[in-house]
Nucleic acid binder design. Structure first.
Lengths: 129, 129
DNA sequence: CCTTGACCTTCCAGTTACTGGAAGCATTAC
DNA sequence: GTAATGCTTCCAGTAACTGGAAGGTCAAGG
């Protein structure tokens, strides 16, 4: 069992956010210590890491709730879980393409900066005419 | 020159957001029509597409302002631009790793859903013990 | 024993980045 | 000529934090 500070370190989330996620019922600590401290298990830590990643790619808290729910809802059929997961995977693949595009744009910019004079913006001036 | 609706289509941003970015001075339309409509050129459209991508990967509006500024600030040295760009590129590469990780986790989950009975969560139960 | 510092708690206000809706003017389509 | 669509401003609301105050807890040092 870990206190919120340990959890923050392990998940790379601010304590404020971990507390917030507990408040809104997204990731609830498995218990409280006698002095009222939130106590988290490895399971919650994994949920929080998963949530941090999903959030950082634009999935809303509500969508994170759904994704986390995929693993917990014993009543949901295997087929449903797969359908939702595949839908999200498609979204993630699109995000991967966009992220590579962003990467390439910035790399191109950085590459253009070898000398002392900088060319026009390769992205913006590219189409501006 | 494009009106805000055309811009919304081209950039895949809501008109509300395009207007908001104009209000906060992030991407300012190149002019106004006689009837007061915002008019955008291809250059602004490219800025908006760039911004949408950067925003969707967690760069703040302020950071987008800085990134867009890299291309416009004639006073900034080539060296500075390169340094900032490389810093952002490192961040993006980290995001790429995380996004692949998320992709893999969900793929693993989807793959586990071939039959009718679903296994325990491969991510969450993995470490929970 | 006491205090210093680093934890933790709740609560409440503020921020960022939109987002929805009302009221109204402009243009196109029938 | 009027209905639909698209634009305008303005203002209020929401999502997801984020900062700060006020205070309890606990291990270490004097």
């Amino acid at each position: 069992m870990y206190t919120i500070g340990d959890v923050a370190k392990a998940t790379n989330l601010p304590t404020k956010t971990v507390r917030y996620y507990a408040d809104i019922g997204l990731v609830i600590p498995s218990g409280r210590s006698t002095n009222g401290y939130r106590l988290y298990s490895g399971k919650e830590i994994n949920k929080l890491i998963f949530t941090r990643r999903a959030r950082s790619f634009g999935f809303s808290v509500q969508e994170c709730r759904e994704l986390l729910g995929l693993y917990e809802d014993k009543d949901r059929s295997s087929r449903d879980v797969k359908a939702i997961a595949l839908h999200r995977i498609a979204e993630i693949e699109e995000k991967l393409l966009e992220l590579r595009s962003l990467h390439q744009e910035l790399t191109h910019l950085a590459d253009s900066c070898n000398g002392d004079n900088r060319p026009d913006c390769p992205i913006i001036s590219g189409m501006s005419g």
